[in-house]
Structures are given as structure tokens and as C-alpha cells.
Amino acid sequence: MATVPGMRFLWPALLSCCLLVMEAAFPVFASDWMMKAPASKRSSQPVSGEQFETSCVRLACVGSIRLYQKWISPIGGSNRCGFSPSCSAFGYQAIQEHGPAVGILMTADRLTRCNIWKGPESGYTLLPNGRLYDPVSGNLLED
């Protein structure tokens, strides 16, 4: 029986997508709003703040970052990034706060700046833990 080329990759690809979605969605499901009252008095939706993620692109982006943080980053040892927040945390926050389009640009810019020459002389504040402070809020185009 003839098989379509590439079909054997379909199930692993689908599984990976599901994993990404679950990775991204897990923090929302496990957020502490669920534990703030007895079950009978608890609302079925978060009261405020974190809402369920509905944008597929954003979900895929933050899911990928979560996947990286959980499974890939620890392989080379933790706390390797010289910036605070780390590049992955920066990307996660940027995408969550400013959407996938701007968030990806900000993350790419951060990855470019996270080079071997970075140092306090480049205008970053050196934190007591030896890292350079570079928050998402300091990289917005607004004045």
C-alpha cells in the first residue's frame, strides 16, 4: 500500500504541538486563583489578572519558551545567561505583555545583545548577583 511521504512525521508533530499547548496552558490551570476559597464558593473563572490564553500564536510562542526552560536549558547548567531577567524569561514576559509580533522582535533584539562583549559599560546596571539588569520595560520604543 502506497503511503504519502512524510506521514510518519505526522503523529510526532501533532504530539509535539499538544505538548507545547499543554506546557503553555499549565501555569494558567495551576494558578493560585483555584485555591483561594473552598470549592463551593469558588468562581469557575479567574477573578482578575491572568486569563485563559486564546491566541494560538502566543500560545505556541510561550509554550516553546516554557519547553526550552523546562527541558533544554537545564542541560547546560542553570543560570547561564548574563542578563536579568534571562533571555528566555525576557522573551516569555515580552510575548505575554506585548503580544507575539512585538515580543518576538524584542526577544530577537535581546538575543543579539546577549553576546560575549556585553558589560556594564554598555549602559546596563550591574546587579549584586553579577548580572546585568535589562528588563522588558526598558526596551520599549515609547519615550
Partner: peptide
């Protein structure tokens, strides 16, 4: 990275 370089 190209568009990030413009933004950056």
C-alpha cells in the same frame, strides 16, 4: 533576527 535588528 532581521526585524529584531531594526527594532533594536
Amino acid at each position: 533576527f532581521y526585524f529584531g535588528n531594526i527594532y533594536g
